[in-house]
């Protein structure tokens, strides 16, 4: 046979490497999450102005970081998939999108929960929240585009083009929204830059960031493996159809 029908479905090396990483990333997720939540919720001091509610930050801020990081990851994976035609890269971008959307959503929900005690309202058109909301739309558009194609190889390329155009726009959107915010927000309203960062706060933040990253890697491995197996199943079904 001139070409390998299973090229797309049989990235053995990826499966081998990820099964070696998987238990470690899982363990790391559990340990870091426990440590981060403990230091964040119990060890870190309450804020002198906001009291205990400031602890929402330890869930909120790293989630926002992850939202941005995962979108960047998707763009890099998409570029790798487009340029070197690496099938696992395409699948990684696809698998990462819902995870990124969930982190973005988490940051929006926690931001809104944090806003209530801070500003007495569930939603403020704060620059960061607004940027995250737009990022969520970018994620949803990406996921919707993937689902609009029947042919997975077409879908992966189209979505890759979108992710690359999107990632060029993310800083522009961020800049414009920040700028819009300074123009329209009365100066008296506190922004979500939060309290000054002391190390007692920074440490749990960083631990939570690492925990989320480990969690992302774990989920990504599970999802990419599932994608590969689904692709393999599809090809088996198709070759069975052709033999008939």
């Amino acid at each position: 046979m001139a070409i390998d029908l299973h090229k797309y479905a049989n990235p053995r090396r990826f499966l081998a490497i990820t099964s070696a990483i998987y238990p470690w990333s899982l363990a790391l997720t559990v340990i870091l999450l426990a440590a981060g939540l403990y230091t964040g919720l119990f060890v870190a001091p309450p804020d002198y102005q906001q009291g205990e509610t400031v602890r929402i930050m330890f869930v909120h801020v790293p989630a926002a970081w992850m939202g941005l990081m995962i979108y960047t990851f998707m763009a890099v994976a998409s570029a790798v998939g487009l340029i070197w035609k690496h099938p696992v890269a395409d699948l990684s971008a696809k698998a990462a999108a819902p995870i990124g959307a969930c982190f973005t959503f988490l940051s929006l929900v926690t931001g809104s929960l944090w806003g209530e005690p801070m500003w007495g309202t569930w939603w403020v058109w704060d620059a960061r929240l607004t940027s995250m909301l737009i990022l969520l739309f970018l994620y949803l558009g990406y996921i919707a585009l993937w689902q609009s194609f029947d042919d997975p190889s077409k879908a992966s390329k189209a979505a890759a083009i979108l992710a690359l155009v999107g990632v060029i726009n993310v800083p522009i959107i961020k800049f414009s929204v920040d700028w819009w915010n300074t123009l329209h927000q009365p100066a008296s309203v506190a922004t979500m830059s939060g309290p000054k960062i002391y190390s007692s706060i920074l440490t749990p933040l960083l631990i939570m960031g690492l925990a989320y990253t480990a969690f992302f890697v774990t989920l990504l491995i599970i999802r990419v493996r599932a994608e590969i197996l689904a692709r393999r199943l599809r090809i088996l079904q198709l070759s069975e159809l052709q033999e008939r």
């Binding site: 737009i134 739309f137 970018l138 949803l140 558009g141 919707a144 585009l145 979108l162 155009v165 999107g166 726009n169 522009i172 959107i173 800049f175 414009s176 929204v177 700028w179 819009w180």
Partner: peptide, 13 residues
């Protein structure tokens, strides 16, 4: 859904 988020900077400025 794909295009409107990318239009936001133009709208703002």
């Amino acid at each position: 859904l794909l295009v409107l988020p990318l239009y936001i900077p133009v709208l703002i400025f």
